[in-house]
Structures are given as structure tokens and as C-alpha cells.
């Protein structure tokens, strides 16, 4: 299992060519209380960097960008009932969607866990 991070604080965990996408703990702390998440429909295709989901906190709406290109194979329906999962479990139950990677080599542009930790440390 391979986890990668973007500079916009999305994470993607890849297993058998399918990546699960969410936002990091740093992101959920910056967002504050999440009250609504708009997840993409299954079957939707994204190019890396596309707006793929929207997170609404009490204060504002924030876009979530596709960390890689591909097609959505599942969306986390649990977020409709319990958007606060993004706050309580950003790296697990608060996942947004799963995407079948069109080009696994795109992962190489993303940060690994150590690099992301350094990146966040530089922001704080």
C-alpha cells in the first residue's frame, strides 16, 4: 500500500490500481467543522488537478482537487449523513472517493509521507 500527498493537502492511498482520496489532518484542522461534503458521482472522469469534490465548513467552501487522473469507482456516501467524519477521521472513515488511476506514473509527482511531514512543518 502506497500513500501520497499533494501540496493542497489531499492524500491518495493506492491499492491494486485504485486510489482512495481524502484530506489530511492538517487540512481538516484548517477547514474547521465540516458541515457538508459534495462527493463526485461514480463514473466521473478527472484529469489530475480537476476540482473533484467540495468541502463546506461553517465558514466557507473549499475545493478538493483530483491528485491523479482517472475514473471515480466509489464515493463515500457516509459523508452525506456525517460530514464531521472528515474532522474526526480524515485519514480513514472520512475518505471522499476512490479513483481508478489512468496513469500510475502521476504518483511520482506527489509527496511521500516523510516529504509531506516536512512540507507541513514548513507551514506551521
Amino acid at each position: 500500500m502506497d500513500i501520497r500527498f499533494t501540496e493542497d493537502h489531499e492524500w491518495i492511498r493506492v491499492e491494486d490500481g485504485v486510489g482512495t482520496v481524502g484530506v489530511t489532518d492538517y487540512a481538516q484542522r484548517q477547514l474547521g467543522d465540516v458541515v457538508y461534503v459534495e462527493v463526485p458521482e461514480v463514473g466521473k472522469a478527472f484529469t489530475k488537478g480537476d476540482e473533484s469534490a467540495v468541502v463546506e465548513s461553517v465558514k466557507a467552501a473549499s475545493e478538493i482537487y483530483a491528485p491523479v487522473s482517472g475514473e471515480v469507482t466509489a464515493a463515500n456516501e457516509g459523508l452525506a449523513e456525517e460530514p464531521a467524519l472528515v474532522n474526526s477521521s480524515p485519514m480513514a472513515d472520512g475518505w471522499f472517493y476512490k479513483i481508478r488511476l489512468a496513469d500510475p506514473s502521476e504518483l511520482e509527482d506527489l509527496m511521500d509521507e516523510a516529504a509531506y511531514k516536512d512540507f507541513v512543518a514548513g507551514l506551521e
Binding site: G32, D33, S57, V58, K59
Partner: peptide
């Protein structure tokens, strides 16, 4: 301060 440690909903 936009919020403290407990967050907007808890403060509200």
C-alpha cells in the same frame, strides 16, 4: 480570532 481550539460549532 476566528475560532479557538474547540471549533466554531462547539463555541456556537
Amino acid at each position: 480570532p476566528v475560532q479557538y481550539t474547540k471549533g466554531i460549532i462547539a463555541e456556537h
